[in-house]
Nucleic acid binder design. Structure first.
Lengths: 196, 196
DNA sequence: TGCTTGGTGGACCGTACGGTCAACAATCGC
DNA sequence: GCGATTGTTGACCGTACGGTCCACCAAGCA
């Protein structure tokens, strides 16, 4: 072993992720990445490879973290139905609406790159499948707890809930004010999760 | 007057719009625009201004055309409820799923540019407001026709329907197969428009 | 037909980008 | 302490981009 790294890899990835989140992939220059990371170009390349690989790494960090939060949130809720409601309302869980305007890094990336970048498309599908499975499991739990009717398919319901959530994310990106957005989220949750 | 234009302005705008639609704003180069339009750089600049203004023009063409179709579709339906159902199902109205993967130019642009481009953000809000108003009007009509309960707010319902539709657009962009997407769309329509 | 006016096209320009590299610095085993 | 090894830095490079410009051209008018 020789000279050790002078930076915290996780901290750098989080800083880079935030930059991509705020500005998008194409609109983020290497100079931006150097600035937010505090590293030189050479170090960045030596540690993470080129811009594309660095982006994929940051995206993976985002999906892993988000997936972890979701898993925990769904698992820790006393009643699954409440967790599902919180899942739909997640895009508006932010007083000032700043998070709503920022949106979801995975959705932003899908819209910007999915047509041209197979790696991003694959990550999108992977995340989508994993989220659907997690939500479907909670739908099943809500059925077991008597809060949702037995005759609906958990996976179908999970896909509908995910679509509703992502639709709210989109409306947040258009700059819709947080109160109106919250009302829309409530309407969707009430209709899709009738017994709440 | 001197030498007249040798191209059809509308045709050029549509070609440019399709290019931006397929590749996005940043990923479309001036060379691409020259290729799909058949014009030289000078002509393009002389007729439409720079890349940004040309993009806004193409985006406006898209929103005007889409808005026109929507207005017509909603107005011509014998029962408003059927039209609302068609509105939600629109993202999957495409046998091969190609249109679903392409998504909606306005949504694509919002995700790519709304944070940094005030003009695009304004166009997004304008389109969003107009669509909400059109859909809300049809919700009111469906209430008058006895197909939707009287106690729901038309504008709230319209926003929920729009969110559901845009959520489906997102799922289409992730490459979800058209059959699964159609099933999700049906679930959403059934829940949000109960008496269909 | 020659003059004027606006359209056309592509050569050309400055710049900012992603990426490379070589010189230097810091740590470890010996 | 010294060499080996790896990390760090920023100057540097080639390229592709958006945008400009100018020489040429076609139509209308006298």
């Amino acid at each position: 072993m020789a000279r050790p790294r002078q930076f915290d890899e996780e901290r750098v990835i989080r800083a880079v992720r935030d930059q991509f989140w705020d500005a998008g992939y194409a609109a983020t220059s290497l100079e931006d990445l150097v600035r937010v990371s505090g590293l030189g170009k050479g170090s960045l390349y030596g540690a993470f490879g080129d811009k594309h690989r660095l982006f994929l790494r940051a995206l993976r960090e985002y999906t892993d973290t988000s997936g972890g939060y979701l898993r925990e949130m769904l698992a820790s809720a006393p009643r699954a139905l409440d967790a599902l409601r919180a899942f739909v309302m997640a895009p508006v869980d932010d007083p000032g609406g700043a998070a709503a305007r920022r949106g979801c890094l995975m959705a932003n990336s899908t819209y910007e790159l999915a047509t041209s970048d197979p790696d991003v498309l694959a990550e999108a599908r992977r995340t989508y499948e994993a989220t659907t499975a997690l939500v479907a499991e909670s739908v099943g739990r809500a059925q077991d707890e008597g809060d949702l009717p037995r005759d609906v398919d958990p996976v179908e319901t999970a896909r509908a809930l995910l679509a509703a959530q992502q639709g709210l994310v989109f409306m947040g990106r258009t700059g819709l004010d947080i109160d109106t957005l919250t009302a829309a989220a409530r309407t969707l949750a009430d209709k899709l999760l009738p017994d709440a």
